Computed example of a mutant assay.
Amino acid sequence: MKSTLLRTQMVLFDNSLIRLDYNPATDIMEVEYPDLHDYLLSEIKRSIDTLLDTVNNYDVKQLLLDSTRTIISVGDVESREIATYLAAGLMRTRVQKVARVQSPSATVETTAQNNIRHISAVQVLPFELQNFSSKAMALEWLVGKS
């Protein structure tokens, strides 16, 4: 029965950039981190706003950001701007834990790690942030099994 609860998800939002899956049994929202292309930056910010509104409306405490399929074709400045925008927005929610599933791309991962270091140096995050090499490990951490 417990494994069934862990698989009960609702799609709260879905567009060409992001999909928000929420599991009320575990209070975990899953989102695939969007591809970062110059021509999509304003739409990505609107999608992040939708993510943040949804997190607030459902009072989500745990978020899984899946970067396994993310493609980045913007520069470091634009990538950092989007990551900072997301982090600043999450700071205004009641999120307690953010699990990030790493990209298999070394380039994407280097950019992400640089962004995380920058954000952590500039502001104190009011939530725990951990990186994981697999979605299963991230979910275990979010449900408190590790």
Rank of each mutant, 00 (worst) to 15 (best):
M1I: 12
K2L: 14
K2G: 10
T4M: 09
L5V: 01
L5R: 05
R7W: 00
R7K: 15
L12P: 12
D14L: 07
S16H: 12
L17R: 11
L17K: 05
I18H: 03
R19F: 00
L20I: 04
Y22F: 11
Y22Q: 03
N23C: 09
N23S: 06
N23M: 03
P24Y: 02
A25M: 11
D27N: 15
M29T: 08
M29E: 11
M29R: 02
M29L: 15
E30R: 03
E30W: 03
V31W: 01
E32G: 12
P34F: 07
D35S: 12
D35P: 10
L36Q: 13
H37S: 13
H37L: 09
D38T: 11
L40W: 08
L40D: 15
S42F: 05
I44A: 03
I44G: 02
S47I: 02
S47A: 15
I48T: 09
D49A: 02
D49K: 06
D49S: 03
T50H: 09
L52N: 05
L52W: 06
L52R: 06
V55D: 06
N56C: 11
N56R: 14
N57R: 09
Y58E: 08
Y58C: 03
D59W: 00
V60H: 02
K61T: 11
K61D: 12
S67D: 08
T68I: 02
T68F: 01
T68S: 15
R69F: 01
T70R: 05
T70G: 06
I71S: 14
I71F: 10
I72L: 05
S73E: 08
V74W: 01
D76W: 01
V77T: 10
V77G: 01
E78V: 04
E81N: 10
I82H: 01
T84S: 13
A87G: 01
A88S: 14
A88K: 14
G89P: 05
G89A: 09
L90M: 15
M91L: 03
T93D: 06
T93L: 09
T93R: 08
R94I: 09
R94T: 15
V95W: 09
V95I: 15
Q96S: 07
K97N: 09
K97T: 00
V98E: 08
A99C: 04
A99W: 06
R100G: 12
V101L: 05
Q102H: 06
Q102V: 03
P104F: 04
V108F: 10
E109Q: 15
T110I: 07
T111A: 10
A112Q: 09
Q113V: 03
Q113G: 00
Q113M: 10
N115G: 11
R117A: 15
H118N: 10
I119Q: 13
S120C: 06
S120T: 14
S120N: 12
A121L: 05
A121S: 15
V122M: 13
P126D: 07
E128S: 13
L129N: 03
Q130T: 02
Q130Y: 03
N131G: 12
F132R: 11
F132A: 15
S133N: 13
S133H: 11
S133R: 14
S134R: 07
S134I: 04
K135G: 12
K135M: 09
A136C: 00
A136P: 00
L139A: 04
L142Q: 04
V143S: 02
V143W: 03
V143I: 14
G144M: 00
S146Q: 08
